[in-house]
Amino acid sequence: MKKTNNFKIKKDSPSYQLKSGSPRLWLIKAGLAQMLKGGVIMDVVNVEQAKIAEAAGACAVMALERVPADIRAAGGVARMADPGLIIAIMKAVSIPVMAKCRIGHFVEAQILEAIEVDYIDESEVLTPADEEAHINKTNFQVPFVCGCRNLGEALRRINEGAAMIRTKGEAGTGNVVEAVRHQKALTREIKNLQKLPLLACQKVAKAMRVPLALVLTVKKFGRLPVVNFAAGGIATPADAALMMQLGSDGVFVGSGIFKSKNPAKTARAIVAAVTHYDNAKMLSKVSANLGEPMVGQDVRAISEPEKLSARGI
């Protein structure tokens, strides 16, 4: 095919062009995340749950062996799910299927790419395989999503090639407080950045260990250069709408759906809540008569070393 020079990234789109990666590949990787916006990505552990999630209006599913609440309860080492299980789920639904690999475990990521999952979550919910480095995600054709607690973590992950960001929250707790903390930290740090003079930005970039260009992109557009979802502890339609009002582009729900009394109904309600997040009347309608949500956990009762969000910073 003849090469053309017509390819241009939108000037007002904060898409970050990596120096080492192809901007066209980046557009495809970050582009899928843009298609997921305003949607709910649901954790599922088997084919039946995946079908329930799809029918309820999930924009993607996360194929796992155990939901975070059970990973937390089980202890031990949590690893990538069995590829056989992920493939079965991919065959069962028509929406994108994501899967998690351990932080720094690039071979798990290679396996997930080989079975053609649509997105890889390099996730702190699994036990980290490398305590020093994350995966170099620019080497992959499949896009990655990564968790963050603040702007520095987010930009480091984007610089490593993450095409989508999510808050870490505190997975498996059914407690939204950490997700709120992380989303607000992001917003606050971006606002502060916008007030800073250029010279100070250099210091910020150095402290965050990311290129100045990336910091300046955030300063210019007033937001992350990729799609940013909320995750970690979202259990009710109101939680989901709260995260949307705080500025998230969409929501991951882990244990919140299949640990509730009525998963299908809860799933449908959270989907509607993310779309109509600023419509309290609609929220009250979808929140009614859902039955027991998942059991919540006080995050302060979790000791620092047991916090999943402290992994992979």
Binding site: M1, K8, I28, M90, D118, Q141, V142
Partner: peptide
């Protein structure tokens, strides 16, 4: 699946002969 997502130049005659970039 996503791994087969692609982009390529596309000529849309009603928009002129200059190709656009189809994602």
């Amino acid at each position: 699946r996503q791994i087969n997502s692609f982009s390529e130049p596309l000529v849309v005659p009603v928009l002129g002969q200059k190709s656009m970039y189809a994602v």
